[in-house]
Structures are given as structure tokens and as C-alpha cells.
Design a protein around this nucleic acid. Sequence first.
DNA 1: AATATAGACAACCGCGTCCGT
DNA 2: TACGGACGCGGTTGTCTATAT
Length: 327
Amino acid sequence: MGRPPCCDKIGVKKGPWTPEEDIILVSYIQEHGPGNWRAVPTNTGLLRCSKSCRLRWTNYLRPGIKRGNFTDHEERMIIHLQALLGNRWAAIASYLPQRTDNDIKNYWNTHLKKKLKKLQTGSSSDGHSRDVSLASQSISRGQWERRLQTDIHMAKQALHEALSLEKPHSSSDQLNPTNGYQTCTLPGQASSYASSTENIARLLEGWMRNSPKQARASSATTQNSFINTAGTDSTSSEGTPSAANNEDIELTEAYEMLFGFDSLDSSNSEISQSKSPEASFFQDESKPDLSDQVPLSFLEKWLFEEGCAQGKEELTDISLDESPDFF
DNA sequence: AATATAGACAACCGCGTCCGT
DNA sequence: TACGGACGCGGTTGTCTATAT
């Protein structure tokens, strides 16, 4: 029973998006900004339901999206965040601003799940499995606490960042943040996305070069090309993971990366990227608020009430001193 | 060369939540 | 406070491509 499907109207198109549709949608959003998806099909003449438009924009057309070729770093982030947050892909994606929740979800389902399974069963005799299962499943209290720490820290920083960023934006040509649209100036890009007609031109160019047969693939790749001009593709693709061989090192690195505050401050960390203006743009647009992720204060309380000796001192630093400010 | 199968990923569906009225 | 519309999220399906037989 439930609600009738939003797109069961006759004449609503389904299936893969064509380049033409993409262009129409991008043009419209450049003009009006994302949001009010209900109005998009009517105003653009697209024979798509509002959901489909939103999804297409959020997952593929939005600037700053990096597609394919997950790096080791990203992979580890996903594994650990999944262990921490579960299948809350949107929350996980908020730590990887260049990735969409759908992308991460797909990557998890198609690659990481299998990989972890393989490693767990395949290396159960050589001691690696302990680490893998640790990464994917069970987390010891101490580790969990440290994650909690990091989460609190990041959440606080994100909030601080967001609050300090809000203030300068008041000009009328930047749409209301509540609809998630701002003039998005991305790193290394002088002109704003919103005013960049070059994006569309590049889209078209790419599509023209490819035969219709390749339309689907080229759609993705050309999107990449224009999207990647916006984002910083720090990954350079060849990061084919070799987790099986380097699991211990990787896990160590991953934990350092995830839990060490030094890495939070490092300029090339995804986490630190999530604090960037463009990240807050993306978060405003489609990512959940960090504060949504874990009821941290409650968990902190619980931890302290548990009287866990192990991470108490560590937690004291952040949780007692800082988190009350945050909440 | 043709067919079968597996893998990858784009897109859809349905439910929950938020927010305005 | 209740209601309804809009949006976001996670799970699932469908389709295309690559590889194996």
C-alpha cells in the first residue's frame, strides 16, 4: 500500500538520461539553482519526474563530483566510516565531499564488500583477518572512542566553519542557502560555476566527439571532464588498491588518517576538504548535517558512565571541554 | 564469432523526515 | 496540532560492458 509512485504518470520518461536532457537540466539549474525540484520538469519541459531530476543533478551533474577510481585513501575512509556509521551512505559521503552517496554505496556493494569478505576468509590463517574484521565489523572500545573523538572534533569544526562562512554570503545573486544553491567558486577556477557556460559547451563538445553508441559512457566521462575542472582531482586514478598485501600498513595508516588530528589539519585530507567552502556548499545542497550523524553527547555520556578507563583521558580533552559548546 | 555469465553502475522505488500551512 | 507536499536516504533493480566459454 503506501504512497503511489511519484513517477507513474503517463508520459514520464524513465531510464538513462540523454545528453540533451542533461543540458536542459544543467542550464535550468544554472539559472535557477537546485531545489524546488517539483517545478523543474514543468519549467524545463523535461519528461522526467522531480526525483529523477534531483538524482541526476546530485549524483552526476553537480559540479565538483569525482567519479570512478577510488583511491586507497578513499577506500580506507569508506571502510572505516562504514564500520563506524553503518550503511549511512549520505553521512559517509559527507566526509568525502567529492563523492556521492550513491557512488559510495555502489562502490561498497560491488567492490569493498567482496574485498573484505575475501580478505576475511582468505587470510584468516595469516592474521590479516583480524585487522580486516576489525575494520569492517567489530571495533574495540578504545578505537571506537577515538572515532567518537574525531567525530566530535570534525562536527565541531564543521559547524564552526559553516557558521563563519554563512556571514559573508548575503548578496542577492547568491540564492538562498536553504535551497542549497550558491555561486560556487571552486578551487583553481576563477569563474563561478553558475556563470560558466563553458561547462555546457564542454559537455556538448564531448558528446559530439563520441558516437551515439557511446553516449552513455561519454555522458559520464564528459561530465567528469567538466566536473573535474572544477574539483581538484588529487587522486590520479591508478590507485588500484592492494589491500590484501598491505592490509596492516593500510589499516595503520587508515587509523592514523581517521583518528589522528594531524591528518585532519593536513591540506590534502578529505576530511579537511570537507571543511572547505565548496564542501559546505555540497553539504548544504545534498549532504546531511554532520550533527545528524551520531548523537554524540549521548554517546559521550554513555562512555563516561561506563567508566571506561582506557580512553577516558583522551576523551576528556575533547568531549568534556569542547562538545558542550557544540551542542 | 556467437553466446553466456559476471561485474559495474545508473536509475528507480518506497519509506521516513522535514517543513510550511 | 494535524496534515500534506517536498525532499532525502537506503535498498533494489535494470541495463550496459567486459570477459569467459
